[in-house]
């Protein structure tokens, strides 16, 4: 018995050490990013590298707006991520609700088609998608970036599973009162699914905010580039200014990080859901 307790104590010590090491490995790059963004360029490139050295200042945060059209990127990202999330959320919820609780002709085949799109990676259709949007004259426009993402098969699937799980006959009360289908949806069904809607919104928002490939092909100049696409192309074309780039990186992570720290549960749910996206 004694040996067992000793063994488990040793096990716990090892696991604690492993976890602490991991916390360090995960956190350190972020700490380095934040500290570096406040350092002067000369201090960053000195050898041997030190985390804290030289003086700290806001120069990088002043420079970033002049070196690259950072404000434009930021604005684009907010417009793109927010519009896509809100519109897609609306359409996904509506479709999910209908697939779950209303019988109509062709429902099964349509739902099968929606599920089928989950099997199609974006990378497979990106060339024709670009050609389509190009032919519509929508390259380098918000509309061209938002429209193709205005609904999401996974979102539909998720909302459908949610609505199916609600008790049967929930809408009957509304029907007896003679409410229309849209009113039933808005007044009775929607209030039931606040948690699911918030998770889905976070999932959409974060996905769009961080996405690189899609905004990269849908924009050809700086006017509509989002943060990831903008920062990535800045990396490729300029002499690297570490402080400035780290300032940009910090600013681009900040909004998501703040929301994450406040709404951690919904965030984790939203991301874990995306795992099912495939």
């Amino acid at each position: 018995m004694k040996r067992k307790i000793k063994g488990s104590l040793l096990g716990r010590m090892i696991s604690l050490l492993v976890l602490l090491l991991l916390v360090f490995i995960i956190l350190y790059p972020f700490i380095w990013m934040v500290v570096t963004s406040f350092k002067a360029e000369a201090d960053i490139v000195s050898w041997p590298p030190k985390l804290f050295s030289g003086e700290f200042g806001l120069q990088s945060y002043k420079d970033i707006w002049e070196r690259i059209p950072f404000l434009t990127y930021y604005r684009n990202t907010i417009i793109f991520a927010l519009s896509v999330s809100l519109i897609s959320l609306t359409f996904d919820t509506m479709a999910g609700y209908a697939f779950a609780r209303i019988d109509f002709k062709g429902k099964n085949i349509m739902f099968l088609l929606v599920m089928g799109t989950l099997m199609v990676p974006f990378q497979v259709i990106m060339v024709p998608l670009f050609v389509e949007v190009y032919k519509m004259n929508l390259i380098n426009t918000y509309l061209g970036m938002i429209l193709p993402r205005a609904t999401n098969a996974f979102g539909i699937f998720m909302m459908r599973s949610f609505f199916i799980s609600l008790p049967k006959g929930l809408e009957e009360a509304g029907r007896i009162d003679g409410a229309g289908e849209f009113k039933i949806f808005r007044k009775i069904m929607l209030p039931q699914c606040k948690a699911a809607v918030i998770s889905l919104f976070i999932f959409h928002f974060m996905y769009q905010w961080n996405d690189l490939l899609y905004p990269l092909i849908m924009t050809t100049d700086d006017s509509h580039k989002t943060l990831p696409a903008g920062i990535a192309s800045f990396m490729g074309t300029h002499v690297v200014e570490y402080g400035v780039i780290m300032a940009g990186a910090c600013l681009s992570i900040l909004p998501i990080l703040i929301v994450y720290l406040f709404a951690q549960k919904q965030f984790v749910q939203g991301i874990a859901m995306s795992g099912m996206k495939g």
Binding site: K105, T117, A150, T151, E181
Partner: peptide, 13 residues
């Protein structure tokens, strides 16, 4: 109503 609800998503997809 059901068709109307899925119409936007189906069109976009």
């Amino acid at each position: 109503a059901g068709l109307l609800f899925v119409l936007p998503s189906m069109t976009i997809l």
